[in-house]
Design a protein around this nucleic acid. Sequence first.
DNA 1: CGCCTTTGACCAGCGC
DNA 2: GCGCTGGTCAAAGGCG
Length: 746
Amino acid sequence: MTKFSFGPTLDTSEPLVLLNKSSRWNPFAMVQNSPPHVAVDGHDRKVLAEMDLFTTKSNSLVVKKEDFHASDLDVNTGLDLLTRVSGDRSSAGDISLKSDENRYTNKLAKIQNELEKTNLENQRLKEMYLQVSNNYNALQLQFVALMQQEQDVRNEIIQKQEQKVDNLAQQVSVAVPRQFMEMTSHGSSSEEKTLSGSGLNTAELSKNVDIDGKTVRREDTPDSNVWTSNKVPRLVVPENNEQTNDATMRKVRVSVRARSEAPMITDGCQWRKYGQKMAKGNPCPRAYYRCTMATGCPVRKQVQRWADDQTILVTTYEGTHNHPLPPAAVAMASTTSAAATMLLSGSMSSSDGYMNPNILAQAIRPGSSSIASISASAPFPTITLDLTHPPNTLQTLNATPFEGHPSSQYFQPPSAMPLQAFQQGGAAALYNQSRFSGLQFSQDKSSNQVLPQNHQSQPQTSFTNSLSAATAAITADPNFTAALAAAITSIMGVTIFSYLGAPNVKELERLKQKMRYWSVYPCGDNMFEVRKGDESFGVNIEARICSCNWYTLSGIPCVHTVAAYGFIKKEPALGVSPWYSKRMWQNSYSHFIRPVGDSAFVFPKDGGQNDGASGAGTSGVAANDGVSGEGPSGVGAGSSSVGQGSSGVQMEQSVTEDTIQDCDAIPTQQSNTKKTIPTQQSNKKKTVAQEVATMIAAGTLKTASLKRRAKSERIAKKGKPFKFPADGSGSTADKAWDVDEVLAED
DNA sequence: CGCCTTTGACCAGCGC
DNA sequence: GCGCTGGTCAAAGGCG
Ligand SMILES: [Zn+2]
């Protein structure tokens, strides 16, 4: 650890780092498995841990706490203040040793008292958090269910209203129904076609068709909007609705880009690797995982290092969990599921601007750089959260005139409440200075590119700009939560338009106009009835309630609420629940912000402080997310990166001389990786010696690996220049890079 | 022994 | 039809 000698200020921050390395700091483990304030690793440490929830580097309270034992006074770990004091006094020689001790005792008692109070407060906050978290989970489930229900109702209404058109559609529906999955994948490509700007008739959205006594619903997915005359409409039998939605939602992807040398970002779920492939144009293999927290959970994720910058880990989520999630997993999962849900419901209810276009309209502001981007192109609608941007961009943003704008004060849908992202990925991102620098709407035309090319996005229409600006405004808040939430918001916005076909201004205007169709009738203090045709909703501004349930559940004004606010000529953003206020969130979650998942940040700190944390070394969870099964899978996630005993897990286990030497020996390590990693053997958790022995012993493995290596190199040749051997992930070079960065930033 | 990773095989979509 | 690519399956083996 001597290599990274920190200034005095870092002394106080070390407990934080220690905690990060400890599995105890896994939010899931902490919240779920261990009751607050149970001294797992020794009382002093625990206390420090608790205090760290609130400390910054300069928190003097932490320093004082370390002074629990008189014997510790000799140890210079942030005790400088007190030892210095005592030294001064003894040099003065006026006060006896005994009085000095008394003084310390009193001081100790005082501090202990203070600590106790803080602990109590801490415990209270934790309980509160637990409760909020649970409530949120429940709410989210309800929300999704309600959305579905409401959609059904809407479909029925529309069915009645547009019976004639239905009959027309019925004629078409006699044609061969195509299988859903097939349609979905086709849809993306057809969607891409429409992005070029074919005018669409969106009047036929969301219709149900009666065929042979069965109600058959035509799905409002992009494909449905972009069918040309010779295309076959998609028909979905109601019985398959659920399955259909599942399939659709699985098609929605949320991609998270974060700078991390850890093999996998922490998301709180259990994953099982089921495949690994070399992807075109990327020397790093792509690993495929499926969620194993419940049987039959459809959620998958792909983990791959970015070709252009292998320090960036790209995790792409797909699908919605079919089971309850631990708090630690809620954020990421809800982000993806919310994305899917929003996309789905947005597409279904897009015809009435259901998805609160108000904020979108509000936030139309000129440009910004990129944090999240949305690829509306094939194969799947994908939102990418880029958490790799440097902090100065953020500062710039903070200075931008977004202040005072409603969108900069409030976050977006609760479905995107990224608590865990805060705790883990978010924290890692924060410490990686992966802040947010605005938003970009990218229409990635390259079909196989899940991730939009960096800064390649090109605004195509004024709407595109508007959306970009909208999301940018929302994400102007320097907060991961805001970014994720805004990402979902942007999904909602994009959904409305991209699912209508092309993101053209016409559609935007059409939706805006449709919003105006809502009539508002005051019926009491702060109460309104908002009507459009047969639909009628009750809005209570004061109680923040709308009978459509969206506002009630989410705290975010729905279109009806917006209309009501418009009626009283007030800013609809005033209706956003205060729970979404920046301050509220910061207060609620500030003590959870720590770099749990990112050993890159932890790494430079000395493992010597690991003494109390017995679990840290053994479980390996710290590298992942505290779910016991995560350790191993995390190792595998980095694919071959673990080969040289430098997996994220192992790094966290022994963050000492070995790893530091690794950093010193980048060239050596690189050559090592070059030799062994392309072989992609299952060398998990083996030492180099063991690995060599294994390779010698396993002749077959060697040939197989040579084959793969050849393939890898061939692919690399075809794609971009071969930079690293197939995998570079988790290489010590990456580690060193991160360490340097962190140090520089410190 | 069960869970997990590894990895070759297989399949489907797509472009030529 | 063929090859490429992305995605998945499942047998084999490792690990705790
Ligand atoms: Zn799941």
